Simulated assay, not measured.
Amino acid sequence: MRARILVKAYPQPSHKYEETVCVAAASEDGREMLRLYPVRYRHLSKDRQFERFDLIEMDAGRPRDDHRPESRHVDEDSIRIVGHGRDLSDAAKVRLWKPFIAPSLKALHEDNKIASRSFGIVKPDPGSMQFFHKPVRQTSEQEQALSSSLFQQNALFQDPLKPLDKPEYSFGYRFTSGGHAHTHLVHDWEVQAAYFAYRKRYGDKALNMLQQEYGERIPTRNPHFIMGTMKAHPQTFIVIGILRSGLDPADLDRQAGLF
């Protein structure tokens, strides 16, 4: 099967797979939003480490132990990049994810109850987004030791992974959707990578620079949240990533109507 990548979440330790990344994608025919796993992204060779909007080809099927309709179990050794997102126009990128926009987060929850929908895209009400950060909650020594060992394990005949920088902060948004207030952390790999890059470049000013990007600039670029449920909590939605564009999806409809 083929799919266009929308976002990948921050790597999580896994007893079974060492470290996995949850990937949100859209099927090539544009009919389905897909959850691809288990993807040990950092184990993939460089020529197979996909980016946003890349078109990938892979062997994948419905998992036996995950009843969420969008979930697909992937043979990561079969992943191959067959098209690059950089070749798509902004309009083509927006058309890719526009069909999966829910009227509101509340409506997405209703779809989850009725049809077990576990993936969707939500537009925050204009002017409602408030970016925040807070220190990562301290874990017990036992949990820290387990996490460290899982991140540093390496599979037989594979090079060991370089330990990831441990997140210092959790980042999120307070926003309204359909007039209802919500608070969600953002689990996108991108926001953590941005913080570490800013910390290296700006030092103590890293959080201020991140606030400018995520608190001021992104809210002006038609932001939409990719939201999905967790396997252990199939009715709880979290923010997996943020889509944004200089184009408003609603404008594409209006432009199409002119012709």
Rank of each mutant, 00 (worst) to 15 (best):
D248L: 01
H15F: 10
R217G: 00
L105V: 00
H182F: 15
H15W: 05
G172E: 11
M58P: 09
I79E: 09
D159Y: 01
D204E: 15
R117C: 10
L96I: 04
S71G: 08
R52C: 11
L247P: 10
D111P: 00
S147Y: 02
Q211E: 13
V39E: 10
K113E: 14
L210D: 04
G120R: 03
G257C: 04
G120N: 07
K134N: 08
S104G: 01
R31K: 14
S245W: 06
M129Y: 03
R199D: 11
Y202S: 08
V7D: 14
V21L: 06
D54G: 02
K231I: 09
Y37S: 09
D77L: 01
D251Y: 02
M33V: 02
I5R: 06
D248I: 00
P135N: 09
Y10I: 07
P69L: 05
A155L: 12
F50G: 06
K200I: 00
N154A: 12
R117E: 13
A206L: 03
Y214F: 14
P234W: 06
H73I: 09
V23P: 05
A206C: 06
K200W: 10
Q49P: 05
F50D: 10
I121T: 05
L36A: 05
A197K: 14
D111T: 00
S148F: 05
S89Q: 12
D65C: 00
R174G: 02
P167A: 04
F100P: 02
C22W: 08
R2G: 10
S27L: 08
F100I: 01
A194N: 12
R31S: 14
R48Y: 08
R217A: 08
R35C: 08
F50Q: 05
Q12L: 09
V94I: 10
M1R: 12
F151G: 04
P160V: 02
R4L: 13
G127E: 07
A9T: 13
Q142C: 00
F171E: 07
P167R: 10
A250V: 03
G120A: 03
A115I: 02
E190P: 00
R80E: 15
H224D: 01
Q235Y: 05
P126M: 02
L34I: 01
K98Q: 15
G246K: 09
K16L: 13
D75K: 03
F132I: 01
Q152T: 14
L55Y: 07
M58Y: 11
L34H: 09
E213R: 04
P160F: 05
Y202W: 15
P234S: 05
P124N: 11
E141G: 00
R254A: 15
